[in-house]
């Protein structure tokens, strides 16, 4: 698991943590059943507060990404494949909507944007 906290980010710290764990679950770097560090251990490692870490885990639990097993800690929850796919698509959709709003702001039209996307897509192989 990899988590990097940025002080310059506008996102609150709990959100930076939950987003990064979520991304690693969606990408498959973290698998179903994988144990997560305890709240206090993670707080210490990231040098953030216990309450902040707790909130990050609570968010993940609410969204169904992790389960808390009393006395044993937190684990990556069983992921519904359909749901996971949907979540992946949603992530991309969010990024794309940022791109669309930027494009509109900067006066780039749909055709130009599409061209840009197709070049990038093919470059990535």
């Amino acid at each position: 698991m990899k988590i990097i906290i940025s002080n310059a980010s506008q996102d609150p710290i709990y959100e930076q943590v939950s987003k990064q764990i979520k991304a690693q679950i969606i990408s498959g770097e973290l698998n179903e059943g994988d144990p997560l560090p305890s709240i206090r251990k993670l707080a210490k490692e990231l040098q953030i507060s216990v309450i902040t870490t707790k909130r990050a885990y609570e968010e993940l639990e609410k969204e169904g990404f992790i389960d808390t097993v009393g006395g044993k800690g937190c684990f990556v929850a069983m992921q519904n494949k359909e749901l996971l796919k949907e979540k992946k698509m949603k992530t991309i959709e969010e990024h794309l909507s940022d791109v669309v709003s930027d494009a509109k702001k900067l006066g780039v039209n749909f055709k130009e944007l599409k061209e840009m996307l197709s070049i990038l897509f093919n470059e990535e192989g």
């Binding site: 206090r40 707080a43 210490k44």
Partner: peptide, 12 residues
Amino acid sequence: LLDLLYELLQNE
């Protein structure tokens, strides 16, 4: 010192 305090807080 902060590291020491984090160490301490491992005990809830």
